[in-house]
Amino acid sequence: MAGPLSGVRVVDLTSVVSGPFATMFLADQGADVIKVEPPVGDMTRRTRPPIDDDGQFSPMFISTNRGKRSISLDLKRPEGVEALRKLIARSDVLVQNFRPQVMERLGLGEAAVRALNPRLIYVSISGVGDSGPYAGKRVYDPIIQGLSGFADVQAQAGTRRPQMIRAIVADKTTSVMTAQAITAALYARERTGVGQHVKVAMLDAMIAFLWPEAMTNYVVVGREAPAGDHNARPDLVFATIDGYITAGTISDSEWAGFCKATDRPDLLDDERFNSQGKRAANATERITLMGEILATRTTENWLKRLDDCDVPCAPVLRRAEVLTNEQVVARELIAEYVHSGVGRVRQARPAAQFSATPGRAPSAAPWIGQHSREILAELGYGAEEIDGLANTTVIREVKG
């Protein structure tokens, strides 16, 4: 059994990142994920500079679509929609992130598909949900960072100018929540025998993601307080003589360890820092002072001193340094394999490891329509029928 989701078939109608990344997690865990692409392919094949001669693969596409099979269908043609209907009828999960009403126009809205396959888990990913004044908006990650308050969390100290984080955090957070929701729905179906409609909006996901610590000032109704002071404090990146480190001093024992490691026992009795509450209230002064102290020695020296005193700490790595970091290497967190269209590629190892049902080894992201013929044959199409669909460009075939 290759992975805990072995035997589960997923129809992946998604594009960009929020959907493909979610279904890739399912593929890592053994599901047969069939990526349904238009003849031109998923747009992320082209949104970054391609790294193959045919222009089919970008690093982002490879890193959000590994382990899937691809069928290329022209859904503007009735024959293409009919092939998709047959595929859906034999699947466990359908995931789509089209704008509202697109699936209905294809005749594949939730009610229509439910009649076709009552056990199906029908998953709709959207930007801001299917109701409310923003429901029809075209949405990408920065829009959600702005709407959810995430950009405010990253605001510049002093000016309070909101800032975007330089990663598509809203897309990827939504992916993780979607993958978890799909497995929960599959579990519920095992108990009830009934499928259901799962809806995940990026805005919903990010507000839920931010709530535990970023919205603490708004948890108690009637006791709201501006969050500016908390967010204006410096971050925990400290310059050393030759690099950068981070260190945490939340508990009393960690603060005591920091004072010992830095030869500053006087700070234990400092009225500004001698309790956890005071250290939080005077965070700007505390973090600024820590930065001044840590600037006096090398990264290696400080990390040893802090580790010896049981203070949470780590080097702040540049992205290239992550590849060779001793912990990353020891845990084999980055795998390499050969992709027929690109050459040797790296991928992060799936984070969840299963003792009884280990996932399969990483496999390449597919070419556009690489498995069209194979999948249609599984649906009962004969060779002549498949040839006819290929000749009339209802399907696209590309051999990897």
Score class of each variant (00 low, 15 high):
Ala2Asn: 08
Leu5Thr: 02
Val10Gly: 07
Leu13Val: 10
Thr14Asp: 02
Pro20Phe: 08
Pro20Asp: 10
Ala22Lys: 01
Met24His: 00
Ala27Met: 02
Asp32Val: 00
Lys35Ser: 13
Lys35Ile: 11
Val40Phe: 15
Val40Trp: 14
Thr44Gly: 00
Arg45Ile: 14
Arg46His: 14
Ser58Cys: 06
Met60Ser: 13
Thr64Gly: 05
Gly67Glu: 11
Gly67Cys: 11
Lys68Trp: 10
Leu73Ser: 10
Asp74Ile: 07
Leu75Val: 07
Ala83Glu: 06
Leu87Gly: 07
Ile88Gly: 03
Ile88Gln: 04
Ile88Val: 15
Ala89Tyr: 08
Arg90Ile: 13
Leu94Ala: 13
Gln96Arg: 03
Arg99Ile: 05
Gly107Met: 12
Gly107Ser: 12
Gly109Trp: 04
Val113Ala: 04
Arg114Ser: 13
Leu116Phe: 09
Ile121Glu: 08
Ile121Thr: 09
Tyr122Val: 06
Val123His: 05
Ser126Met: 04
Asp130Ser: 13
Gly132Thr: 11
Lys137His: 12
Arg138Gly: 15
Val139Ala: 09
Tyr140His: 10
Tyr140Leu: 13
Ile143Phe: 13
Ile143Thr: 13
Gln145Pro: 10
Gly146Phe: 04
Gly149Lys: 01
Ala155Pro: 00
Ala155Gly: 00
Thr159Asn: 09
Met164Thr: 04
Ala170Cys: 14
Asp171Asn: 02
Lys172Gly: 01
Val176Tyr: 08
Thr183Phe: 07
Ala185Phe: 04
Leu186Tyr: 05
Arg189Gly: 11
Arg191Val: 10
Val198Ile: 13
Val198Leu: 12
Leu203Asn: 03
Ile207Asn: 02
Phe209Trp: 06
Leu210Val: 09
Leu210Ser: 12
Glu213Ile: 00
Val219Asn: 00
Ala227Cys: 03
Asp229Leu: 03
His230Arg: 09
His230Leu: 07
Asn231Thr: 00
Ala232Val: 01
Asp235Lys: 01
Leu236Phe: 01
Val237Ala: 14
Ile241Gly: 07
Ile241Glu: 11
Ile241Arg: 12
Thr246Gln: 01
Gly248Trp: 04
Thr249Gly: 05
Trp255Pro: 03
Gly257Ser: 04
Leu267Ile: 00
Asp269Leu: 00
Gly277Leu: 11
Gly277Asp: 09
Asn282Arg: 00
Ile287Ser: 04
Ile287Tyr: 08
Thr288Ser: 15
Leu289Met: 11
Gly291Pro: 05
Glu292Arg: 02
Ile293Val: 15
Thr298Glu: 12
Thr299Ala: 11
Thr299Val: 10
Trp302Thr: 01
Leu306Met: 10
Asp308Cys: 03
Cys309His: 14
Asp310Asn: 12
Pro312Met: 02
Cys313Phe: 12
Val329His: 01
Arg331His: 01
Leu333Thr: 06
Val338Tyr: 13
His339Lys: 08
Gly341Asp: 06
Val342Pro: 09
Gly343Ile: 06
Arg346Lys: 14
Gln347His: 07
Ala348Lys: 00
Gln353Ser: 05
Phe354Leu: 09
Ser355Met: 00
Pro358Thr: 02
Ala361Gly: 11
Ala365Met: 06
Ala365Val: 02
Pro366Asn: 02
Gly369Leu: 09
Gly369Tyr: 08
Gln370Val: 06
His371Glu: 03
Arg373Thr: 14
Arg373Trp: 10
Ile375Ser: 02
Leu376Glu: 03
Leu379Ser: 10
Gly380Asn: 07
Tyr381Arg: 07
Asn391Gln: 15
Thr392Met: 12
Thr393Trp: 08
Arg396Gly: 07
Arg396Lys: 15
Lys399Thr: 13
